[in-house]
């Protein structure tokens, strides 16, 4: 723990930073460095991760390009390169680096990327509970029973071995299901990107947009549920 905690950056300053350089007060329009005094500018809290990394809000991202951008911005923001600068610049560098790292982590993984986009487009994705796929409901209840039974059984016994075989088969089925959901998601991602690329804003595209978001949300929530079950299963039979 650091003994000397810094005070929070004044929030008024952050808001101003969107339009004005915190140092020389000249106009800044979204650049990370002021054109006049070359001081680093704080990345606005309101900026989404796609924009921050210079990518459009699409669900298919070229990972190599993303990495290149991440490295480029890391070279621009990392505290290592601000050691000789003023305290203000060091604070901004630290904040920007932390935000950049979060942005890269969110966008790098397709699932997290989609969850983040859902959050941006429809809001509050964190509030969504993971839910079992409707058609697997019965199967999952049964699996829970088998897991409980296995936990209470001597693993080296004949019953134990039989239960284990059954669980391994279940694991296989669920993992296959998880993969098929990921394929479905991939299709939805492609559809979403195509819809965005068309850029039309009529009632038909709005309906299509809402349908895609709803489906993505449902599959993401089902997939998270299945993933948790598989993790639990793997941990139990390990």
């Amino acid at each position: 723990m650091d003994h000397h905690h810094t005070h929070g950056t004044n929030s008024r300053e952050l808001q101003m930073a969107r339009s004005m350089c915190w140092h020389c007060q000249s106009e800044v329009s979204g650049e990370y460095f002021c054109e006049r005094c070359v001081k680093v500018q704080p990345v606005s809290k309101d900026l989404d991760y796609f924009t921050c990394m210079g990518f459009p809000r699409r669900l298919t991202i070229d990972l190599r390009q993303l990495e290149t951008k991440f490295y480029e911005l890391s070279r621009a923001f990392h505290p290592d390169f601000f050691q000789n600068k003023s305290e203000e610049e060091q604070t901004i560098s630290l904040g920007n680096s932390a935000m950049l790292n979060t942005a890269y982590r969110m966008l790098r993984d397709p699932i997290q990327r989609a969850e983040y986009l859902l959050d941006l487009e429809a809001g509050a994705v964190k509030e969504i509970r993971t839910s079992p796929p409707a058609d697997l409901f019965e199967e999952i209840l049964e699996l829970q029973d088998t897991l409980d039974e296995y936990r209470a059984t001597d693993r080296t016994s004949e019953t134990g071995r039989q239960l284990r075989t059954k669980l391994l088969a279940e694991q296989h089925t669920l993992e296959q299901r998880k993969r098929s959901m990921e394929t479905q998601l991939q299709q939805l991602f492609t559809d979403w990107d195509a819809l965005q690329d068309r850029g039309e804003a009529n009632s038909q595209t709005r309906v299509e947009r809402d349908r895609l978001l709803k489906q993505m949300r449902e599959i993401l929530s089902n997939r998270a549920y299945v993933k948790n079950i598989v993790n639990d299963l793997v941990a139990t039979i390990a």
């Binding site: 723990m1 650091d2 905690h5 005070h7 929070g8 950056t9 929030s11 505290p79 290592d80 630290l94």
Partner: peptide, 21 residues
């Protein structure tokens, strides 16, 4: 931070006031 050391700060969202911790 880049040293792997934790820093904590807090701010009151209603007033925008930050407090040292």
């Amino acid at each position: 931070d880049a040293n792997g050391i934790l820093n904590v700060k807090a701010s009151d969202m209603r007033t925008g006031q930050s407090q040292s911790i």
